[in-house]
Amino acid sequence: METLIEVQNFTFYYGESPVPALADLNLTVRRGEFVGITGPTGAGKTTLALALNGVIPHFQGGRWSGRVVVAGMDTAETPCSRLARIIGSVFQDPEAQLVATDVEEEVAFGLENQALPREEMLPRIEEALTMVGIRDLRHRSLKELSGGQKQRVAIAAALAMRPAVLVLDEPTSELDPQGTQDVMEVLRLLNREHHLTIVLLEQKLAAMAPYISRLVCLHEGRVVADAPPREILRREKLLRELGLEDPPVAAFFRQLQRAGLYSRDLPLTVEEGREELGRLFAKEGIL
């Protein structure tokens, strides 16, 4: 598949800080991938998100070197307004990133900035809201929405600009488990049905792992692991060293694995886990 994002030896220092937030980072994302990026606080997740959408170096100053190329464009040489059409960005705080007072206006905001005629805006708003499953909220005030709904509005607002990739920086950190799962389901749908490339920076591993095809672990501004989530979750030492969440289902099967009682791939969801447990009991002649 064609390369969509290419981060080459990218290093970034905030202001005068002696410690780099990103240190010689390399990352490639191909079109159609759903990549999860994780790491503890301070590992560089947010900095990476800002480097991908061009906020670094255009808006956030600092010392940097290396290159970030998205869809053939070098982000340092492309104005933010142009990048905005290629990279849809969603942030952590559902309140602080919304600019309008009702859903329709919020989704229209990016289109207005692109100076799209009104007739073109209306179908795009409809399309974006339908894609995230909140068409019925179109005329609602943002104040009345739950955190999960607000995040879906933020996703719709990014989608309306028909980006090639969606970059989400901890979009579920303020949400409850149900809200988190709703957002994950929406992302899965966008990736599977609409073939949108998704980069999700997130520390809720249990919630994210079943949805992503690849998990990148950051530590002190570097990529320390890059593999399918099942592979990463086998590496207990890595999880512990980075202080990452150890999803309960995978943790249980990993312990069985170590005791020599289980040898298949680690299940990521409760459903997969039940199936594996059933298979195990059947094999051992129990039940």
Partner: peptide, 25 residues
Amino acid sequence: RRSRTLAISLETRGFGSGPRTHLRP
């Protein structure tokens, strides 16, 4: 802290790049 998030959000949605149109003039 929050105003910084909003500033970044506006930036990544192409605000301030030139003439714009209106959903509701």
